[in-house]
Write a protein that binds this DNA or RNA. Structure first.
Lengths: 212, 212
DNA sequence: TTGCTGGTTGTACTGCAGTCCAATATTTAT
DNA sequence: ATAAATATTGGACTGCAGTACAACCAGCAA
């Protein structure tokens, strides 16, 4: 197994040395075609505190991940960085101070077509999708189930931004009929206008908290 | 290493026996405090076809995951079930017929504070979160950045369903002024009315494809 | 048969949304 | 210092949204 550590530090950390005795070291990311043979795993170490994953490092991940499995080691792990790294092609993201056993574990997983992700990130991401897939979608279904077939068609059209006239044309009915259906919809869902309908179905709380 | 399999079956499958010769078996989930010491890994086996992850099993996952690492093995794996299991605290989810090597691999990952997730689920989930965190949120920011401070305030209020009159009251300006800001907003974002504003900012494509 | 639900349409009315044409004051950039 | 951008408001106008009050028809259950 062929390991290459990329880090500005002068020497390999004892931890890494212990995990992979035959590991080599480089100060900066080398050209891809210079590596013959390409290492099995390239470990890229982020030292920074604020912005661990700098642009050049991200670029290195993208470039190197074509030939080798890339794992990013961060001194100050951040979930946003992890996602960015994985998006760029990294096969793993972990704390730089992970114990030897974990490092070896990561190596095994990564070389076996696996992806190694920190548990907390995984939990958050999983929770997120679970919410997205179930929470909101089930809510929407519960609401739509209160409506008749025709009302559902009208509601779905309106929720996509259609005007009464447009809905009328696509459903081949009068604008007046569309209004009738809408009035019924509003009553059933206990709302007052199409804007609230959009906010209920297209919903998802317009949150701009930024960052994760 | 201490393994406990929970399954309605009378005996351990040969596969499991081979992977963990010292594994024990239980028909139902035991009380947590009866287990001294708690097993390192508890494998919960789902036999059902339609609804593999029944409510009592989920409850067992939640309860047992406090003491031991819990891995759910499904005869008919489903992504929704996997999400639910992980949400409940499971540390892994895999096919019940996974080969011996994989089972052992799972055991190692799970005992090293890792989480084992099927590759396809991982791919879908990662893509989803990335979209949610970057794609849309950055889009929203890009849009909001085109607006002036005051316009942003108006836009954010409108996007939450406020009428012009309401916005006027909360910002202490005339309804006429709100209209002026809105006209400017519409031009800048190249839209025609407040509904499209909601769909652009609250966005997220009202998709009801159902199922995963 | 009768009653109920769902789908359809009509007329008339109220009110909000959005635009056009201005106008004024403040701030910022050149 | 002059121009440009931003914030503010007025009046008048068009048009869509939504409601009230009704009416007709088809299918279905009691």
């Amino acid at each position: 197994m062929n390991h290459l550590f990329i880090t500005p530090a002068a020497r390999l950390q004892p931890r890494w040395q212990a995990a992979f005795p035959q590991a080599t070291l480089a100060a900066v990311a080398p050209e891809t075609d210079r590596l013959t043979p390409p290492p099995d795993i390239i470990w890229i170490v982020c030292e920074g505190e604020q912005q661990p994953l700098s642009a050049p490092l991200l670029e290195a991940v993208t470039r190197l991940s074509a030939e080798s499995a890339v794992v990013v080691l961060a001194n100050a792990p951040q979930q946003a960085d992890a996602l960015q790294a994985l998006q760029a092609g990294a096969r793993g993201y972990a704390h730089a101070l992970s114990p030897v056993a974990t490092l070896q574990q990561i190596a095994t997983v990564v070389t076996n077509a696996g992806i190694w992700v920190p548990a907390d990130l995984m939990a958050q991401v999983m929770g997120h999708t679970w919410q997205a897939l179930n929470g909101e979608q089930r809510l929407r279904h519960a609401l739509l189930d209160k409506l008749t077939e025709r009302e559902r068609e009208v509601a779905l059209a309106v929720v996509q931004g259609a005007s009464n006239k447009q809905v009328a044309r696509t459903l081949n009915i009068t604008e007046r009929t569309v209004k009738a259906h809408l009035t019924s919809i509003f009553h059933k869902l206990e709302i007052t206008d199409r804007m609230q309908l959009i906010l209920k179905l297209a919903d998802r709380a317009v949150n701009l908290p930024l960052g994760m």
